[in-house]
Nucleic acid binder design. Structure first.
Lengths: 210, 210
DNA sequence: CGTATACGTCTACACTGTAGACCCATGAGT
DNA sequence: ACTCATGGGTCTACAGTGTAGACGTATACG
């Protein structure tokens, strides 16, 4: 009940934001809270549980603050997706933790539920809804994690420099796309385009047997 | 040049497979190789570089062994996706490392190239190809990582038991889907269905302006 | 012969998570 | 008024981590 646990989790999040998640050690966290390392174990079972708790705190921030019921299903979906991306931009370390820990926290379930209701409203046949929820959340979290950890970083996709010792004939695709690779990429508009495509995917599934 | 490095990386992979990736310590690895911990640093810059090298080894296994040129673009895509999933099933620890390290290794580029050529063959307008490649690889790796780390695990999606202290009214989506949640899920056929949907997505993009 | 080069060893340091025993304030019950 | 449980905090100690730095040695090549 005591807000002490939340205090601790927030301190841990702050450390991770400032110095990276690796800087979150029990000792450093204890220092920050003004307490002995072992005292933390009264509020947190484990270091693993600590990390779980940290993402839990962020999940809360992900949910729409105002019910905002007015909008259409695809706008609600997009809003949630953008919120998720915003969180992982502010807290890059959190991105790949979202994969490890199933979203069984209340807030996690609430997020899943938003997707469920959106898909139902879109006319997706009910048996397909859970699958599409997983497809969407997987992509969104995956995109966020990729962005946060540099998988999309400049120099990853193409750069002529990178593919040093491969015969050009070995990478026909890269060769064909020469002009388009290496452009600076705007991940925000790319994310938008991806979401639009996925929205169309949902509509297609709904049409197939709605 | 020396195959020593590969020997070491393979030993590390073996340890990770047997006892989890956390069991891959420089000391444990050194023991396994029959050498002193510090000797490893002649072949590997860092622990981080060690992990990179490990996923590099797996990437090699991902690529199609025989050129297998006969097939259509979507079959080649599906084959690659399944190969990726197979790898992360055999080596669950590797899944989320794939997100951290950009695929700049030669084998990584080769995999990207397979997707590029498939998309071009599908008729996707060239400027859109890199984006769709990222969309697809993000989803595939995301699916693999989710599966490997239990995000899809039974008990994650619904279970009545889990959503203990939430008013049922708070999760209308879950309530509406009651019957369909909690079914045992067959991730292989789900993955197939997802890939089919994504194939259709690609076709739609190709149609839009092909 | 001499000298690189590749490979390996030993020692040492700062740091990690956490088990176990102990302490102290508060408040409830009898 | 006395006991007792409970929640929070402290100290010590241990086994394990990655890795910097100095030192050794055996093979291959000029």
């Amino acid at each position: 009940m005591s807000g002490r646990r939340e205090e601790i989790l927030d301190a841990a999040v702050a450390i991770a934001d400032e110095h990276g998640v690796d800087a979150v050690s029990m000792r450093a966290l204890a220092d920050r809270v003004g307490v002995t390392p072992m005292a933390l174990y009264r509020h947190v079972k484990d270091k693993a549980a600590l990390l779980d708790g940290m993402v839990g705190r962020l999940l809360t921030a992900l949910l729409p603050t105002d019910p905002a019921e007015e909008r259409t299903w695809d706008e609600r979906l997009r809003a949630l997706a953008h919120a998720a991306r915003r969180v992982t931009q502010r807290h890059p370390w959190a991105a790949h933790l979202l994969f490890s820990r199933p979203a069984v926290t209340p807030d996690g379930l609430r997020a899943v539920d938003i997707i469920y209701t959106a898909l139902i409203e879109a006319g997706v046949p009910e048996p397909q809804v859970p699958r599409l929820e997983r497809l969407i959340s997987t992509f969104v979290i995956g995109f966020a994690a990729s962005e946060a950890s540099g998988r999309f970083a400049p120099g990853a996709g193409d750069p002529r420099g990178r593919r040093g010792h491969l015969d050009d004939g070995e990478l026909p695709g890269h060769e064909a796309l020469g002009p388009w690779l290496g452009l600076p990429l705007d991940l925000t508009t790319e994310f938008e385009a991806d979401l639009a495509d996925i929205t169309r995917l949902v509509e297609a599934v709904a049409r197939r047997e709605g």
